[in-house]
Amino acid sequence: MKFAVLGAGAVGCFYGGMLARAGHAVTLIGRPQHVQVVEAQGLRMQTLGFDETVPVSASTDASAVAGADVVLFAVKSPDTEAAGEQMRPHLAPGALVLCLQNGVDNAERLRAVLPGASVAAAVVYVATEMAGPGHLRHHGRGELVIEPSPRSAAVAQALIAAGVPTEVSDNVRGALWAKLILNCAYNALSAVGRIAYGELVQRPGVQGVMRDVVAECRAVAAADGVTLPGDVDLAVRRIAETMPKQYSSTAQDLMRGKPSEIDFLNGFVVRRGDALGVPTPANRVLWAAVKLVESRPTS
Rank of each mutant, 00 (worst) to 15 (best):
G84A: 07
I146W: 05
V126G: 11
E147Y: 05
S77H: 09
T80H: 11
T128I: 14
R88F: 06
E85N: 15
A131L: 09
L144Y: 00
L91I: 11
L136K: 01
L110R: 11
A66V: 10
G103L: 01
A82R: 07
G116F: 00
H139E: 14
I146F: 08
T80A: 09
S77P: 03
P93M: 14
V124T: 10
A95I: 15
L96N: 06
E129Q: 15
A127C: 15
A121E: 08
V70M: 01
G103V: 04
E81T: 12
V104R: 00
P78M: 05
T80E: 09
K76E: 02
G134V: 05
A122W: 03
T80P: 07
P78E: 00
A122C: 08
A92G: 13
A95P: 01
P93C: 14
A107K: 13
V124I: 08
E85W: 09
H90K: 08
C99L: 05
L100R: 11
M87I: 10
C99G: 09
P115T: 12
A95K: 02
A92E: 13
L98D: 06
V119P: 03
F73M: 10
V113F: 03
L72Q: 01
A120C: 07
G134H: 03
H135R: 15
V75H: 08
E85T: 15
A127W: 11
D79N: 14
L144C: 09
A82G: 14
P115E: 02
V124S: 09
A121Y: 00
M87W: 06
V75L: 06
H138K: 08
A74R: 01
S77T: 15
A121D: 10
G67P: 11
P115W: 00
D69I: 12
G67N: 02
G67T: 04
L98R: 12
V71I: 07
L136F: 06
D69E: 15
A131W: 03
V70N: 01
N106L: 00
A107T: 10
R137L: 14
A127S: 15
V124D: 04
M130F: 11
V97M: 03
L91D: 04
D79R: 11
V97Y: 00
V145F: 02
V75D: 07
